[in-house]
Design a protein around this nucleic acid. Structure first.
Lengths: 213, 213
DNA sequence: ACATCCCCCTGACATTTGTCACACGCAGTC
DNA sequence: GACTGCGTGTGACAAATGTCAGGGGGATGT
């Protein structure tokens, strides 16, 4: 049952899944995409798990996922879809794009990555691009990602930095990581040095900005 | 053309200004509000200063402002509008509502405060409510604001907490504030105690969450 | 006028944190 | 095998940070 794209009397519409926790945006977006003849919004979701369930039920051609959603984030949903519905193309729409997110998204098989500053018209074009099997990444976000480069942090460094993210004292971090306090200090110090930060808290901030957390 | 509300020529449409840095949302929103017969989007803006300029030029009845915008945030724009165009009602739409923001907004004369999780239909109703001179605050956000209460921080405490926000060492903060290092430590310690935080970094995080920064 | 309270500011002291030198295990290379 | 480099883990020491007690000044209530 392969769908040939050239059918009589016009092409079959592209079936789209929309996932975004902000109803206002999701609804408005659905209305705008409905104006395009060749696009059809077949399902909407307000959370990560819901997006997965909707995808299983409606088997869309393209899944448009917000990056920050309750439950599972956009990349996690894309990862799950990659194995469950290999034919479904995925793309991420995000408010503030961090370089690391783009890298994670591409690794998860996402084919489109755009900020919410694009127009609806442009988004429709990108959905078609992605559906055709091509990739599209916002040029500005791509430039940021390239200039930011890869994370220089080792696995433990990143893990401890994450535990330090909420400002907890070393003792608590050490207990949660089952390590000696001195070891924790050493890793955090190393991470701070790699990020040219004055201390671990500044290091957390920088790593967050770069999307390395 | 079906015209329920303006058929008799009685009601003039409500002139609306839309300000949001995410073009996708702004455009989609404009399209949805255009479906309402009694609402007319007369101007759009993508930044705080642009929103002010547009308001001066088009004199809308209601200004719908996003909280986080480049240049000036929504509350700052609302404050400026209060003196420049007293007849223009203002309302804030935000993604993640922090309790403190709501308080600041109400102090600035804002008459509506809603999260982006509402539907477009609901937003249209709220715009009418605000235009009629009434207030509307999302119940959930209101509950959060009440439970969070007022900021217990003094002016200096908040100021130094802000300077400490990027993880700078005490010496640098002291220099920037023209204070003795001991004084800085004392204020930050006091702030941390009031917020039940382990240290100043956790205090910054908590204050940010509550919207007290 | 006086007492009281709160905010602003400071220095001395104890604790926490960051830096350093070093040991172990585990790849890959010669 | 022996060498080398890297990630992991630890404790001792120096520096940064948080805590404490206290002085000065303006506002408020009696």
């Amino acid at each position: 049952m392969t769908d040939d794209r050239s059918a009589t009397g016009g092409e079959r519409p592209v079936r789209v899944l929309l996932a975004d926790d902000e109803h206002l945006i999701r609804g408005a977006l659905a209305a705008l995409l409905a104006l395009e003849d060749d696009l059809l919004v077949v399902a909407e979701a307000a959370s990560g798990p819901e997006a997965l369930a909707m995808a299983r039920a409606h088997r869309p051609d393209v899944a448009v996922l917000d990056l920050q959603m309750p439950g599972k984030d956009g990349v996690a949903v894309a990862t799950a879809l990659r194995t469950e519905l290999p034919d479904c193309r995925t793309m991420i729409v995000t408010g503030h794009g961090r370089p690391g997110h783009l890298k994670r998204a591409l690794a998860a098989g996402v084919r489109g990555f755009v900020p919410k500053t694009v127009s609806a018209q442009r988004l429709a074009e990108i959905i078609r691009t992605v559906h055709a099997g091509n990739r599209y990444v916002d040029p500005e976000l791509a430039a940021d990602a390239i200039s930011a480069g890869d994370s220089p942090l080792t696995a433990r460094e990143a893990e401890l930095l994450e535990l330090a993210a909420d400002g907890a004292p070393i003792a608590e971090i050490a207990e949660r990581a089952a390590l000696a306090p001195g070891t924790v200090r050493n890793y955090l110090s190393s991470a701070a040095a790699k990020l040219s930060a004055e201390n671990r808290h500044a290091a957390v901030r920088i790593a967050r900005e770069r999307g390395w957390l």
